[in-house]
Design a protein around this nucleic acid. Structure first.
Lengths: 214, 214
DNA sequence: TAGGATTTGTGCGTATGTATT
DNA sequence: TAATACATACGCACAAATCCT
């Protein structure tokens, strides 16, 4: 990959993480100049990353005002959640990948990390593990278009959980998350990626229900 | 909408149309400077539109070489077609919109235009009508995320038909297209958007089969 | 192999828009 | 209301990369 393209990817993914982990909460005003200084570039390449995040709905730049992190609310994301559930299920029907030993090794690691998280619950650690686990879930499908779409929609909804956290039971959420990973591990060991997809869908659905109940 | 944002949208959609209608066939090298002159701007706003098209896979910019229109082949788009079919069906289950008189008036116009096209078949006229009809199809769903995703995937696959046209029977394709619109009209008059979605899915599937058979 | 022509990428000064005092 | 401060948007000049002679 060329230097410019890889830098763009680096800036884009880093800023996306910061937004979705609430390092930049909704409403935060980002400074092009400060960020450019931090990343050691001029404003130009940085602006390209910001523009992409704006195209994807995570930022909103207004002339003369600033670049603001968009807000999210559960009502607005109801439709996105509905689509995410359908896509999760499609993972097992659209070019599913056979379960490999490497995948099993990975899910084992996730289960371990999930157990460690449950032992010492933390909001940010939860969010980071969830993001990594979602990324792992994408590898279960061999359909590029489905992966791209699922990833885009995930990052569009990822913030809502962290934002709603104060009203939730963190330890319980960690337990539920660990249970999902454990169930998925069982399904993958049996080579049943269809079951794994249904588990994923079910947990997205239940997660949405819990958020809506707040 | 602000001046900058509306101009960006204008540049983006215009260039996207040109790429997908094969005004710029795959492999074409676009000149930032020429396009900037044509649209009466400097390179800066134009480059933002090009960057967005690159992020969506329609262009590829290489330092020192140029900005090239990407190529498409049916094998690579098999997965995208598979996803498009699923999404077409979801239109009727995820926030379907009730059929309104305005929609019926629109579909009537499309049937008329389709009949006119069949009377005097033309590749470009077909492609333009198909694009407009797809846009109409998006209005049948009230799910924003589904609409955005469907639109993105449509423009990712739109070129393949025009590119494959030389080996196909244009008059027959026009007839099939008109039949789809007519069937959809019947379904909408009956208020059966579920049937309309199934018709759409079936035609995407059959269209893909015909393309694969080349 | 070297060099020039052409293209995209970068950096920065300036214009323009907004909010506040 | 006017002025000031500060942000993004823009345009241009130059750097860097590639290709062809």
């Amino acid at each position: 990959m060329s230097g410019a393209a890889s830098r763009h990817q680096r800036l884009y993914t880093e800023l996306r993480s910061r937004i979705c982990l609430l390092d930049y909460p909704p409403g935060t005003r980002l400074s092009e100049e400060s960020l450019a200084r931090e990343f050691g570039t001029s404003r130009t390449p940085l602006r390209r990353a910001l523009a992409r995040l704006e195209d994807e709905g995570l930022l909103l730049s207004r002339h003369g005002v600033g670049t603001l992190v968009t807000d999210v609310d559960i009502a607005e994301l109801t439709q996105t959640y509905a689509l995410r559930m359908e896509l999760a299920q499609l993972t097992s029907t659209l070019s599913p990948r056979p379960v490999t030993p490497a995948m099993l090794a990975e899910i084992d690691v996730f289960v371990s990390l999930g157990a460690a998280l449950l032992a010492r619950p933390g909001a940010r650690a939860f969010a980071e593990l969830n993001m990594a686990y979602h990324s792992f879930g994408l590898t279960l499908s061999g359909n590029d278009a489905l992966r791209d779409t699922s990833e885009r929609l995930y990052f569009r909804t990822a913030r809502i959980w962290l934002k709603s956290l104060p009203g939730m039971d963190l330890a319980e959420e960690c337990a539920i998350f660990l249970a999902e990973m454990h169930q998925t591990r069982t399904a993958l060991i049996a080579g049943d990626y269809h079951a794994a997809a249904l588990i994923r869908r079910a947990h997205i659905s239940m997660s949405f229900q819990r958020l809506s109940a707040l």
